[in-house]
Write a protein that binds this DNA or RNA. Structure first.
Lengths: 153, 153
DNA sequence: TTTAATTGACTTTCTTTGACTTTAATTATA
DNA sequence: TATAATTAAAGTCAAAGAAAGTCAATTAAA
């Protein structure tokens, strides 16, 4: 039996489809009323089914005229380059290696000069302040995140 | 439903656009009357949507013949935009604020859509894994780093 | 018996409104 | 003419209202 969370998930996905899978904007209280559930149920659905891992991301505003915006990333995981890169980066990566990948992306014209500068800036040790020794993990997360948005269809 | 603040924001942005995004001059009471809101609502809109973070600044005069002038930072080459931004970002910044700045940079054509996506990806909470609670500091470092490379030449 | 879903009380953030203050320009008065 | 009074703006601030976020306790499902 489908839970109310599943029903709400489906509802959002249908809305997104109607909107060519770009972006939808909802009012939490409206949706909650419509499905006769508690408002925080909506947050639960978003958290568990519309996070970055699932290929969505959420923005919102509180107060009068507040809203929740769901954006579909539609990362194209089928592109071999993308898949290979994510795998190569893995869970941690050193600065040199990261820069090598960025350079290659630029050389093969996946990204512009400027784009590569931005990405390299985010790979710098001075920028990745981190009390524990998890710089390389952080760098991997960042690089994978940035590359993923690049390969959107 | 868009708040009245959103509507007024849009109104000013359209006026600015008609004026090649340089400067506009308005009368607070006129605008308030036009949108049937309290005059201080105008100040609220200016404070929250036309501050330096958003790439604008405000001048005004009280009394007879008083006015409010909105200037796009971009139009004012006496102020190095990135200096102002770096200062504004400071040592830590929340995701919402960061995204605001990125959006403004895109709107004012300092950066492309793709560049803004890359930067936003690096601002995500899920990406900024951090054992201690220093996400906002990390984000500030990253954003400042990326902005710096964009404005160097 | 561990994981997932539901609920609701409480918190935080953003917007709206209005009463009161300050400043500038104009008009009236000594 | 110099000053005072009046009027015409804009500024400030705090209270009330509107919406979303958080978190922990319970309940249901696997």
């Amino acid at each position: 039996m489908a839970s109310i969370s599943d029903v709400i998930e489906k509802f959002f996905k249908e809305l997104l489809e109607q909107n060519q899978g770009k972006t939808i904007q909802i009012q939490r209280n409206e949706v909650a009323k419509h499905f006769d559930c508690s408002p925080s149920q909506i947050n639960y659905v978003l958290m568990t089914r519309f996070n970055v891992q699932h290929g969505y991301y959420i923005e919102s505003r509180r107060g009068g005229g507040g809203f929740i915006k769901i954006t579909m990333l539609r990362a194209d995981n089928s592109q071999p380059v993308h898949r290979v890169l994510l795998k190569e980066i893995g869970s941690e990566i050193a600065k040199t290696q990261a820069n090598r990948i960025i350079k290659a992306l630029n050389e093969q014209q996946y990204i512009s000069e400027r784009e590569s500068s931005i990405m390299k800036a985010a790979m710098e040790d001075q920028v990745l302040i981190s009390p524990l020794n998890n710089r390389d993990q952080l760098r991997a997360q960042l690089l994978k995140g940035m590359i993923t948005v690049l390969f959107q269809r």
